[in-house]
């Protein structure tokens, strides 16, 4: 029983990180019904941006967020305004395929600039742990979890209490009526994507510090995001938090019992079973 405590606690902490990774994807789906297949790659782009800043300016990765966050906001805004807004419509495929194209472009761009080698962002807290009885809490995982919770908290606050957040939700409910209220909907969707990319930027820096990454890692995190969303239900931030923890627990407990080679495999298998039993997700509402 005690041996189980370690993976269980690590799973909860990692779940917080998974939730932030999925946050941008789930909010954009909720708002414009857009499935951004480039989400994982945009997140990894943030990891590389942070790595470059840490390497060349010698700053702390957390400080690099001061640059990475606004850059990613602009990237997201431009991507939505000039590319995705143009293909949003009745059909699901065109925006999906455009995002897919962006994903491929990003991966190969990263490959050109940063080589295929695995990279990681090193920090002083990388190897530190806190001892609690027999349990070791990795400080980095703890930071992931805390920051993850903060991001979710502030994002919820933004969407529920701010003018802009309400306007985004209004535009998501009824574009035509939102225009009547004086909302410039094409800008609003671009801002929503910019905000999704802010969460991706934070997730990217955290992932970069926690795991190694290379140009093709994006899709792996896209699938993790989907996992979180499938379990937690589309468009729900609270669901993303619970989904993140369940997925991480499935992976870590799976690895605990069967060996690390099967960690991802068991995570995916749990996903598929959930998808088959409840296609709208554990906490999602049927449409």
């Amino acid at each position: 029983m005690e041996a189980l405590m370690q993976p269980v606690i690590n799973g909860i902490l990692l779940g917080g990180l998974y939730a932030v990774i999925a946050l941008g994807l789930t909010t954009m789906f909720g708002i414009v019904k857009l499935v951004n297949l480039a989400h994982g790659d945009l997140m990894i782009l943030s990891s590389y941006l942070s790595l470059a800043l840490v390497t060349y300016l010698g700053i702390n990765p957390f400080v690099s967020l001061i640059f990475v966050v606004p850059i990613m906001f602009v990237v997201g805004f431009a991507l939505q305004k000039y590319l995705l807004n143009r293909v949003l419509g009745k059909e699901m495929e065109p925006p999906l395929l455009v995002a897919f194209g962006v994903s491929i472009i990003l991966q190969n761009l990263l490959l050109l600039v940063f080589t295929p080698d695995a990279k990681g962002i090193m920090t002083v807290i990388s190897v530190k742990t806190i001892q609690l009885g027999n349990i070791h809490l990795p400080v980095l995982y703890l930071a992931d979890f805390v920051i993850g919770c903060l991001v979710i908290f502030f994002l919820r606050l933004f969407y529920n209490k701010s003018f802009l957040g309400r306007a985004i939700r209004a535009a998501s409910d009824d574009v035509g009526a939102a225009r009547l209220m004086g909302i410039d909907t094409s800008n609003i969707f671009a801002i929503a994507m910019g905000i999704a990319m802010i969460t991706a930027a934070i997730a990217g820096v955290l992932v970069g510090m926690t795991f190694t990454f290379y140009p093709h890692t994006g899709p792996q995190y896209l699938i993790i995001s989907f996992g979180v969303i499938i379990i937690g239900g589309l468009g729900s931030m609270r669901g993303a938090f619970v989904g993140g923890i369940i997925l991480a627990e499935a992976q870590l407990l799976g690895a605990h019992f069967t060996g690390p080679g099967y960690q991802l495999l068991i995570g995916y298998a749990v996903l598929l079973i959930i998808l088959a039993i409840r296609p709208q997700g554990l906490f999602g509402q049927a449409h």
Binding site: F163, R166, A167, R169, A170, S172, D173, D174, A177, A178, M181, I183
Partner: peptide
């Protein structure tokens, strides 16, 4: 009206 927004949020918008 914006169906998923609260009555209060509709007025705010």
């Amino acid at each position: 009206v914006f169906p998923r927004l609260t009555v209060y949020d509709n007025l705010i918008i």
